[in-house]
């Protein structure tokens, strides 16, 4: 490989590759129920078919997910925590790709982050930015990525492709994502423990 390639010429393909990886683990979420209609994105979080999205996206007990390859799958809501704006959906576990999860607490201010989602109906759109404020133990990551409605529930990832947050809202022009350690805690308490108790032999944690 030529060493003459400039950084500028290399960065484009790198972001393209990163986007392709993230699209594989990002789904479009559509729910309809008593609480109204919800549309957004979701992350294939575990290899057991758990999809994480925002509580404000998952408004009903059932959802339709659309994978990047266009396939549609039915999913059921297994947990919803409006205070943390998180929800977990379950699909029949098959050989689906799942995200590689990073630790948001290790993020440094200035690090490049990438968001993938379906903003304003645009499928698989990517936006990049930097970490604006390091979360350390804070529950959210603030970054200067441009988000729009429809990004909600989608992944925020590092340049290594590790998902470190779930995009949730825009505050003062800054993208706000629920940090991965908060998501892990939510899954541990509200999903895996519950499933483990309720459905013996089908523990997924």
């Amino acid at each position: 490989m030529s060493t003459l390639l400039s950084a500028g010429a290399l960065l484009g393909p790198a972001i393209e590759e990163l986007t392709a990886q993230l699209r594989e683990v990002t789904v479009r979420v559509h729910t309809r129920g008593r609480r109204g209609e919800g549309v957004g994105s979701g992350v294939l979080w575990t290899r057991h078919g758990i999809v994480v999205t925002n509580a404000h996206v998952a408004r009903a007990s059932a959802a339709t997910l659309e994978l990047w390859n266009g396939e549609r799958i039915d999913a059921e809501l297994v947990a919803r925590d409006a205070s943390r704006d998180l929800a977990a959906l379950r699909i029949d576990s098959r050989d689906l790709p799942h995200a590689s999860i990073g630790d948001a607490r290790a993020l440094r201010v200035g690090e490049i982050v990438v968001a993938v989602g379906h903003p304003l109906g645009l499928r698989g759109a990517v936006s990049t930015g930097i970490v604006h404020a390091a979360p350390h133990d804070a529950p959210v990551i603030r970054s200067d990525v441009k988000l729009a409605p429809g990004n909600s529930g989608g992944p925020l990832a590092t340049t290594s492709g590790e998902v470190i947050g779930v995009n949730a809202m825009i505050v003062n022009g800054l993208g706000v994502a629920i940090a991965s350690h908060v998501v892990e805690d939510f899954l541990r308490r509200d999903v895996f423990d519950t499933l483990g108790r309720g459905q013996r032999g089908k523990r997924v944690a």
């Binding site: 490989m1 290399l10 393909p13 790198a14 590759e17 990163l18 201010v109 590092t158």
Partner: peptide, 19 residues
Amino acid sequence: MSTTKIGGATLRALSDELA
């Protein structure tokens, strides 16, 4: 190394540099 791999490394290096 492929362009993609060098690109990925360049992107991570830029990210580290900014931080």
